[in-house]
């Protein structure tokens, strides 16, 4: 394939920590294969090269938290054939969506010496609330192998092998002993989408829900278990559901029940 025919890739950042686009750089050896397969046209974390659109594939990290971002994402959408959002911020609003549960002006007054310099929205929202998204890749951060798989699938015009079932399936495939059953540790695994490979339970911690709600999340059943069998109080249950994916509808609704 000649360089001219290579698909043009853009990587854009909105309100986020940069960790997900870093996952692309973290691909190391595979990164060479990526650069063979695509022309990196815009990726400020990796290169100062600032090429204009249109783009064949765009990866978008971060959530929409300012009026400027709300406008910018529309422009990016217009110049992209395929738009893929990456990470909890871009797919649900991220940790900054905690503001959605409170008055944003309260935070402004506490955090900034001159709140009047700050122009922000009342909420942090996922990209899909603003523009059409072709694929959402979950995670906080995303799993680099899943990122490669998604890029690969779009380049080869096939369906990405990304599962939407519960994290428990990955734990069992890996042979991890269930921390909730064998240790009484509260774990969001049964309501969280697979993708991380079961990192936390393999390190004796409960799942924190980084990959957001799985396809059919029964959060009520899990919250009941936390409250009635694992001895958690309502505040702890609320905080379990209100973290990196606080604004994902299933987690948001569950946390609101425990206010």
């Amino acid at each position: 394939m000649s360089a001219r025919e290579k698909p043009r890739l853009g990587v854009f950042k909105f309100s986020s920590c940069d960790g997900c686009q870093l996952s692309l750089l973290d691909c190391e050896l595979e990164l060479l294969a990526v650069t063979d397969a695509v022309e990196i046209a815009y990726f400020l974390e990796a290169t100062r090269k600032d090429m204009k659109g249109p783009f064949d594939v765009v990866l978008v990290e971060g959530s929409i938290t300012t009026p400027h971002e709300a406008e910018l994402i529309r422009q990016i959408r217009k110049s992209s054939k395929v738009l893929i959002t990456i990470g909890a911020c871009a797919t649900s609003g991220g940790i900054q969506a905690l503001r959605n549960f409170a008055d944003v002006n309260g935070f402004l007054d506490i955090v900034y010496a001159r709140p009047d310099y700050i122009e922000t929205l009342d909420t942090a929202t996922p990209i899909a609330d603003h523009v059409q998204v072709d694929f959402e890749l979950r995670g906080c951060p995303i799993n680099k192998y899943q990122l490669l798989e998604v890029l690969n699938a779009f380049l080869n015009k096939r369906k990405p092998n990304i599962q939407n079932y519960a994290e428990c399936i990955e734990c069992k495939q890996r042979g991890t002993v269930c921390v909730m059953v064998a240790k009484g540790v509260a774990c969001l695994g049964p309501v969280t989408q697979a993708g991380c490979g079961g990192l936390c339970p393999a390190s004796h911690r409960g799942c924190f829900g980084c990959f957001g709600p799985m396809e059919t999340p029964n959060t009520t059943a899990l919250a009941d278990r936390f409250l009635n069998e694992l001895g958690q109080d309502k505040g702890t249950v609320l905080r379990a559901f209100r973290s990196f994916n606080a604004n994902a509808p299933a987690f948001r609704e569950e946390s609101l029940k425990h206010e």
Binding site: A166, C168, K172, P190, A221
Partner: peptide, 10 residues
């Protein structure tokens, strides 16, 4: 009560 987590099948 069922969370469709699939643990039983695994």
């Amino acid at each position: 009560r069922c969370m469709s987590c699939g643990n039983c099948t695994m």
